Simulated scan of single mutants.
Amino acid sequence: MNSQIELEFEKSKSKDKDERYEAYQNILEATEQKVDWAYEVWDQLLEDLTHKDNHQRSRAAQYLANLAKSDPERRMLRDFSRVWKVTYDEKFVTARHSLQSIWKVGLAGREQKEMVMKYMVDRFKNCINEKNYTLIRSDIIQNMRNLFDHLHDEKIKQTAITLIETVEDKKYKKKYTAIWK
């Protein structure tokens, strides 16, 4: 790992909010591409998924989702449930930011895509009793759209449309359908 990325990870834990946010943006940008240093931070990020600071939990989940494409050992297949758990965080903003980035795990390969889709389909079907479930469903449908846009897999689109068809509330059915227009 180069010294600049090391510095960004240090800054991401700074007391200074602006410095922390800039580091967060820089790490997300760096991890948009495959990197050769994923395992240098992997275990620490897994630990941070349960950090007392909800911002640390959220960032760790987002970084790991981005790093899935840089995971030739396919550790994400083993560790995904730990990342997914943050999508249920007690702080809704933390849960939501984690959920909104989870689709990126599906870019790492066929098995990862199938795993992410399975988790998202299950959550869509079973989140009705969760607070803000309409936002959760919207994020899941958007995640599927993001995966589809990157992978052009018609099965993803069909799964999303099938899920949308199960929604009884016309307002939300229309909102979710709009994501696919």
Rank of each mutant, 00 (worst) to 15 (best):
S14K: 06
E6S: 08
Q4R: 13
Y88V: 08
Q158I: 15
Q142N: 09
K181I: 07
V35T: 06
D169P: 02
D18Y: 12
D36E: 15
K175T: 10
L67W: 08
V121C: 02
Q112G: 00
D48Y: 03
T50G: 09
Y88F: 13
D89S: 07
Y176K: 02
I128Y: 09
N26R: 08
E32F: 12
E47H: 11
S58K: 06
D18P: 09
Y88G: 07
K15Y: 06
K181Q: 11
S12W: 04
L147M: 12
D122I: 02
A60T: 06
M117L: 08
K11F: 06
L151G: 01
T166Q: 06
E73V: 08
E6A: 08
T50Y: 05
K118H: 08
W42M: 09
T87F: 04
E73N: 11
N54Y: 15
L45D: 01
L64I: 09
L28D: 05
K174L: 10
E154M: 02
L135F: 08
L107S: 04
Y88I: 03
D169C: 05
A65E: 00
E6F: 12
V121E: 09
E165D: 15
V93G: 14
T50I: 15
D153P: 00
K175R: 11
R78D: 13
L28S: 09
E10K: 10
Q62I: 15
L107M: 10
L28H: 10
D89W: 07
S3P: 00
C127Y: 07
K69R: 11
I128L: 07
N2V: 04
K11N: 09
K170R: 10
L77I: 03
A108W: 00
V116E: 02
N26Q: 12
H150K: 15
K175M: 11
T87P: 01
A60C: 07
Q62K: 07
Y172Q: 06
V121H: 03
Q100R: 09
V41W: 14
A61W: 05
K175H: 08
L135P: 01
N2T: 08
K15H: 11
Y21L: 10
K174I: 13
Q112K: 01
Q158W: 13
S14I: 13
E111C: 06
K17G: 06
S81G: 07
L147D: 02
R59P: 02
F92D: 04
K174P: 00
L107G: 04
T177D: 02
I164N: 00
Y176N: 00
T177G: 01
P72T: 12
E29L: 10
H152S: 10
Y133P: 00
S12A: 13
E32V: 08
D89N: 14
K170P: 06
K174A: 10
K173E: 04
D153G: 05
H55I: 15
K173F: 06
H150L: 15
L147Y: 01
S12N: 08
K17S: 14
A108K: 01
E73Q: 12
E32K: 12
A68T: 02
D43I: 05
D16R: 06
C127D: 07
